[in-house]
């Protein structure tokens, strides 16, 4: 019964997403929806390593930027067709993520956070300075994959492309979540030393999750490059993008498949609203910071668990696990 209602809810959700462009009143709303979907892809990708292992990377913008620039440079420099370039850029980032992961995952906790930030800052400087290849701060124009399409159609096509990519990342997360590999990753999140003592090859598991997460983030970056068509290191290698990924996942709930998607929806809409209302001020950043504070203080596990907890409290009371029946007491007796 519960499983059937889940499938119905999923079907309704998919139908709503697919139908959104049909009811979208204008091209701006559709473009905002593309932005939110792209956030959902990035945040769910981040959650493959952040949610399962508890390793909080604030520098995932590094893989977003590498995927975006990789795709753009393969098209502009090597003449590779757009979507082949996207796939190749994802592969290149996967290969690069192996040595990066080997170095970064040797440290835990706050040290890992700092290492992840350092990487994105280094890449920002490299891509800004390497002007002859990346265009530096002048930007890099990415040829549109469908030049014949007008803006609204362009947004429409990318809405569905981002939705397909999101479905792929969600499917990967779901598969891992149910798997023995996922159970090992969650054990790492809970207590890494204990997991190792039980026989979980923690380093290999962490590295695999890290590489997968970086690859999906890179695909999100490459798709963004094809959609947006103009890259600048300041935006592609931005700490802010990495922070958004974390905030969105935390807001929705890192232990839930749709947590980052819900977070992307809330934060994405809020960001667009504040930008609309307050223009080029930095107020949207202040609002985002406040939102993060509220989440950490009042919903440390995210919105989904908080709502579930609320519903559970309104539902029938479950007895405490410490209340034991006479039969159980009998069972507990000393053998």
């Amino acid at each position: 019964m519960r499983s059937a209602s889940r499938w119905v809810a999923l079907a309704v959700g998919v139908a709503l997403v697919l139908a959104f462009p049909l009811v979208s009143p204008n091209a701006y709303i559709l473009s905002a929806a593309v932005v939110i979907l792209h956030y959902a892809v990035l945040s769910t990708s981040w959650n493959v390593v952040g949610g399962f292992t508890g390793y909080i990377s604030l520098g995932h913008a590094a893989y977003f930027g590498l995927g975006a620039y990789g795709t753009a440079l393969l098209i502009t420099r090597a003449g590779v067709p757009s979507f082949l370039a996207l796939g190749l850029a994802g592969l290149v980032v996967a290969v690069l993520a192996v040595p990066i992961g080997i170095a970064a995952l040797r440290v835990r906790g706050a040290s890992f956070v700092i290492v992840s930030i350092a990487l994105v800052l280094i890449l920002l400087l490299v891509f800004q300075s390497w002007r002859e290849v990346t265009g530096g701060s002048d930007g890099l124009v990415v040829p549109r994959p469908f030049p014949e399409l007008l803006r609204p159609q362009h947004h429409l096509v990318f809405f569905y492309l981002f939705a397909a990519l999101l479905a792929l990342v969600l499917l990967a997360w779901w598969t891992i979540d149910r798997s023995r590999f996922g159970m090992g990753l969650k054990a790492i999140r809970e207590d890494e030393d204990k997991a190792q003592a039980l026989g979980v090859p923690t380093f290999a598991y962490k590295l695999a999750a890290f590489v997968l997460s970086a690859t999906f983030t890179a695909l999100g970056g490459g798709m963004y490059a094809l959609w947006f068509g103009d890259l600048d290191p300041v935006f592609q290698f931005s700490i802010l993008i990495g922070s958004y990924m974390v905030l969105m996942a935390l807001l929705g709930g890192v232990r839930h498949l749709f947590g980052p998607v819900l977070g992307a929806l809330v934060v994405g809409v809020a960001l667009e609203f504040f930008k609309q209302q307050y223009g080029d001020t930095q107020f949207h950043l202040v609002a985002t910071g406040l939102l993060l504070g509220v989440v950490v203080l009042f919903m440390p596990d995210g919105v989904i668990p908080a709502v579930r907890g609320l519903l559970a409290r309104r539902g029938p009371q479950q007895s405490s696990i410490r209340e034991v029946s006479a039969a159980e007491l009998q069972k507990e007796r000393v053998p």
Binding site: T175, I176, R178, S179, R180, G182
Partner: peptide, 8 residues
């Protein structure tokens, strides 16, 4: 790999 991805 197959056993790793099998349902826990």
């Amino acid at each position: 790999i197959g056993a790793l991805l099998r349902r826990s």
